[in-house]
Design a protein around this nucleic acid. Structure first.
Lengths: 120, 120
DNA sequence: TCTTTGTATTATTTATTATAATACAAACCG
DNA sequence: CGGTTTGTATTATAATAAATAATACAAAGA
C-alpha cells in the first residue's frame, strides 16, 4: 500500500502515517495478518526518519491495530477486537464536524449521504 | 456561554476555545450578532493568556464565524454565508472517524444514528 | 481626557516534532 | 558460527509550535 504524506499539512508526519494505515485497514487495502513495511524501509521510501515511522508503529501497536515482532516486523492484527463504539477522540472529532455541517446548513439527511460515500 | 478547557487534552488551548465557540454557534447557545466576551475578559475568566484568546478570535474571524471591531469587541456574524459543503479539513476528519467506525464493526445505519444524536 | 477595545510587538519559556547517529537483543539464514 | 535484518532504546540536536509576559498603539465611546 502506498503511503504518501502531505508536507504542507499541519498534521504531524507520524500521525499521517498512522491515519493512512488505519484507513488502509478499514477499506481492506491492508488485510488482517498482512505484513507491513519495515520501519527502515518505509522511512527510506518516504524520505523521513526511521524514528518517525517507529513512532507511528508504536501508536498503532498501542491502539491495538498492529503487533510487532523483533524479527518478523509489523503485521496487522488478525482479530481486531474493539468494542463496537467510537473512541472518545472520534466522538469529539465527529461533534466538531457536525457542528460545522449544521452551521453550513447541511441537513442530517445530506450529512448521512456524505457519510455513506465514505462508507463506500 | 461557559467555555471550559481541558488542560490534559492534546488539542491546543486556542483551538479548544475556537471549537467551543463554533459548537456554541451551531447549537444556538451563541446567536448571530451576539456579543462575545472580550479578549482580556475571557482570558482572565479562563486563566489563560490574552494572546491565546486573541489567537482563537483571529482564527474564528479568518474562518468567517465572527467579526471584530476595535471598539465594540467581537460578535458572531449575522449572516454566516458558507457554501453548503464541508471544508476539506472536516471531510478528512470525517473520513478518519468513519475508518475507525468501520473497523469497529459499526454499520452505516448505526453510524447515522450516532450522527443523529449530535444533530439533536 | 480617560477608558476599553482589538491588535501589534518583542522576548522568553515550554512542549512537540523530526532528525541524526549509534547501539542492542532477538532471530533468521547460509 | 558469523552475518544480517528486525524492532527498539538511547542521546543529542534542531526546528517548530504553543503559551506566557510585559508593553504599547490606534480607534472610539463615555
Amino acid at each position: 500500500m502506498i503511503i504518501a504524506i502531505n508536507e504542507y499539512s499541519d498534521i504531524p508526519i507520524y500521525l499521517q502515517i498512522r491515519n493512512q494505515i488505519v484507513l488502509g485497514i478499514s477499506d481492506g487495502r491492508l488485510q488482517p495478518g498482512e505484513q507491513l513495511p519495515t520501519v527502515r524501509g518505509l522511512a527510506e521510501e518516504m524520505g523521513v526518519n526511521s524514528m518517525t515511522v517507529n513512532k507511528a508503529y508504536q501508536l498503532l501497536k498501542q491502539e491495538g491495530y498492529i503487533y510487532t515482532d523483533r524479527r518478523n516486523g509489523a503485521k496487522v492484527r488478525e482479530q481486531l477486537n474493539f468494542s463496537p463504539e467510537l473512541s472518545e477522540e472520534s466522538r469529539e472529532a465527529l461533534q466538531r464536524v457536525i457542528s460545522e455541517a449544521k452551521i453550513r446548513g447541511i441537513t442530517k439527511e445530506d450529512f448521512c449521504k456524505i457519510c455513506g460515500k465514505f462508507y463506500e
